[in-house]
């Protein structure tokens, strides 16, 4: 049980680091900002699972609702505005 839990935590941490690398450097995403934003939302989602493993359900709820939900949408609002401007040819 304990070993299984540790192994699962290790896998979760690896997945989190991988998506953080994609979010930050843009490798493997064709340099698209939308993929970076989604990957950072994924980091937050994995982090909320990790908080649950660390026996912090309050923090897990907050991270899931705020970190991976609202933050991602704020980014996409701004991204859509910026992209619409780029299509104007300016």
């Amino acid at each position: 049980m304990n070993i299984l839990m540790t192994a699962m935590t290790g896998l979760l941490c690896l997945a989190m680091l991988g998506s953080a690398w994609v979010a930050v450097t843009g490798k493997g995403s064709g340099q698209r900002v939308s993929i970076a934003i989604l990957a950072s939302g994924l980091v937050s989602l994995f982090a909320s699972v990790l908080f649950l493993i660390l026996a912090a359900p309050d923090v897990a709820m907050t991270e899931a609702a705020i970190g991976s939900g609202l933050t991602t949408f704020l980014f996409f609002f701004v991204l859509s505005r910026v992209r619409a401007g780029r299509q104007d040819g300016s």
Partner: peptide, 25 residues
């Protein structure tokens, strides 16, 4: 529900507020 039950279960004002904001979203 989440912020009414903040003193009993995980959750509370901040989480409930974020859920309400996602409804508005």
């Amino acid at each position: 529900y989440v912020f009414m039950n903040g003193h009993l279960t995980p959750g509370g004002g901040f989480q409930g507020g974020a859920i309400i904001a996602s409804g508005i979203l």
